[in-house]
Amino acid sequence: MHEIIQFIMDESVTDLPENSTVKSVGKSANVDHSAARRNLLKLGVAGMPMVLTLKASARQLAISQLNCVIVLPSRMRILVDSDGNAWSGTRNISYDASKGGYKLSDIQKFKDHRNTREFTGGLPNSLTPSACSSYSYGGGQDDCDDDSGGKGDDDDYDYYYDADFENASSDLDLLMQASSNTYADGIEAGYSSKDDDDDDDCEEPTHIDCGYYFTTLRRNREIRPGDFIDGSVWDLRGDDGLFVALSLQYACGVSETGWPGISCIVSILTYLRQNGGSNACPPY
């Protein structure tokens, strides 16, 4: 906005209609202004606003408060389930489309790992994957094989998934389409399938392709939480939005210690408070 104002200032010269209510400053004398004014009108026809509004709240503060950038000091992986719970840690979760998606044991290991942070609930719907329906649970027909191909340890997978993760996660998006039951229902359906006339005699599934969203944010990734402010409310989308959502839970007093970029988040929260945002903390 400053550029536009500066532009108007540069383009215009002085003349004042008679008006007693106007205090005049910086007025230069008797310049022929008509050309500049005509120019301005042409710009108006081309769509430049004739009225500019200065945000009457700490905008400059806002600029510094909102413009902050979080640079991730290390790789961070985030797992989200359909109940809005989230886990963040550094371990990988293997994904194998042919076996039916994410390896359940990896998911469990990820959740259980001592360096994993758990966020219980509170993610907005826009960031939560759909729950599994009883039918979409599990994966291909042959997922009863034990995962002989997938026995390698997590670190083996890191390299592969880091290179290819972008694709994997967008595929995942497609897989996570609407369904009405909860993940828990899906699990039950899976267990109870013993008795039905399923072709396979699988004891229990080893992979899952629904009810979870998993993503990796690389080291040095730059995240601008200010991008997710719409007026005075949060509009959280995508992986960066997910990171911001978790940061908010931390900043609003849920988690423990050591979350990157917390001062940036706090400055934005402060800005939102100053600007009357009533839902700065989750739920958004």
Binding site: D83, C252, P283
Partner: peptide, 9 residues
């Protein structure tokens, strides 16, 4: 209860 899961304050 499912949708909101508010933070305890």
């Amino acid at each position: 209860a499912i949708q909101w899961r508010p933070m305890s304050r």
